[in-house]
Amino acid sequence: MKYTNPEIKQDVNVSKGHPLAEFLRLLAGVAILITVAGIVLAVSIGWAVQFVPMSFENELAGRFSQSTPADSPQRDALQDLADRLIVHMDLPDDMKITAHYVDGDTVNAFATIGGHVVFFKGLIESMKDENSLAMVMAHEIGHIEHRHPIASLGRGIAVMLTILAIGGASGTQVPEGLVNQLGLFSTMTFSRSQEREADTTALQAVQQLYGHVGGSSSFFRYAAALSERNPPEILSTHPDPGNRVRKIRDEATVAGWALDGPRTPLADALTKPALNADSQ
């Protein structure tokens, strides 16, 4: 018998195809999977929040932060403004709005679960009159009225779970920071349609409180400043401020509301915080 060991033919044990092509195909497939799963989750959560009782949301909020705000004359002034706006808004009975004042230079205000609206000193200082501030306040209350904070929280958790599930299924090391970033990002933001919804609600409340919608432009300067701080346009969740101004103007015109009128000055506690602190 004649024995031979033939040369090993190349690529017998290795599938053909370029690794990059395989990578791109897989990436596209999984991206579609994640997107579809994410959209389905986000939509179903957005729909389901209406069944979450407000009492549960309040309890949830209490677990994360203190529900009773630190007392200050500024807070009282903000709460007073909120209370006057709520009269013209359509809040359910178990929905309570609590205003918070933060002594920080950030030009920001936000609404969070449990009916809490938080205002930073920086934002209030950038407002010329109460009408402008009322627009922001009504906008944040509008978010709460439409249950946006709890929807965002649910969405954030859903996004985190989706990423973790896919990371777990694939055994890939999805960097923990990335998961947290994505989850937090979707928790802290409202979608463009939610912003518009809050705008419409806010405008109506402001109109009913003051008899005109003057001062709402200051609110959009604030929105512009907000989007400037979030550089990547694609990640910006607020609609273009210019578009919002136009849209609001259109809405007001259609409804036959006055675009401006006598402005109401800001409460003393908000304009002279230092003086008030001294007099205490």
């Binding site: 599938s15 897989l26 999977l33 890939t172």
Partner: peptide, 14 residues
């Protein structure tokens, strides 16, 4: 990374 993606959809792990 590619193998991780492959683990989700199945197929030959090239």
């Amino acid at each position: 990374f590619v193998t991780g993606l492959r683990a989700i959809v199945g197929g030959r792990v090239r």
